[in-house]
Amino acid sequence: MPGLHTIVCLKVVPKSEEVSVDPETRTLDRGNARSEINGQDMNALEAALDLKDTYGGRITILSMGPPFFEPFLRLGLAMGADAAYLMSDRAFGGADTLATSYTLAAGIKAIGGCDLVLCGEESSDGATAQVPPGIAEWLDLPQITYVSRVQVMKKARLLRARRQLQSGYEMVETLLPCVLSVKLGINEPRFLDFQRWEWAMEEAPVTVWTAADLGLDEGYLGLPGSPTAVSSVGAAPSAQRRGEFLSGTPQEEAQQLLERIRPLVRLS
């Protein structure tokens, strides 16, 4: 049996601390924000590379976004992925999780399917964590979310994963193909492999697809295809803190502190 074919869904996000809200227009100002590959997606890619190291096979990167995503996808190729597809079309703009998962699922079908879809659990900008289950539903594949460890029994086409829950974890298994979302920080993404650099930057295949290329259902694309709508945007309020410094010996500091917080303490 040939190696695994894994598709990794990857998103480029603005650095959170550089995004602000224009107080006048109450719109998001991400114009000057630097971008990076979503951290969880880097973990998903590393998980895929790790599986490739063990079981062989190939990795395809899939992303939906504007043309400026392309050099970021090439970084993934320099890390060790084999091919990349960028779904880029104005018609995809403004997509919510329903439209995004529809578009990415269509991309996965157009690539010709795979053994495993790996996603980050959520993106740092939207933080919904709803796209991976959405992709699984559109493809009618089993899903395992919040994964912290993956193991594949290749012959049996069986995948075992450790799922993080609120307190504790569970071990689950399913048959390939399936869709996984991995938690932030489950592994350390390997750095760029400079032996692959020139190939990744210049020769490697990065295919750009528009909506028309794939004959997608416009009713599920972009802003018009999104059931949810953002009705307002604002900067999150920052709590005003007292910032009172207590000083003296540690005993004196403890005493002053106790005087101030005593009403909030319940002796037990």
């Binding site: 919510d96 999780t97 329903l98 998962s101 529809y102 939207g126 933080a127 919904t128 964590a129 709803q130 796209v131 991976p132 289950p133 959405g134 699984a136 539903e137 559109w138 899903q143 979310t145 919040y146 999104s226 059931p227 949810t228």
Partner: peptide, 18 residues
């Protein structure tokens, strides 16, 4: 969140997360 993401697509409706 695991359930909601899947359910929203099955029902073809909108989901406001978290």
């Amino acid at each position: 969140r695991d359930l909601a993401g899947r359910l929203a697509v099955r029902l073809r409706t909108g989901l406001t997360a978290d």
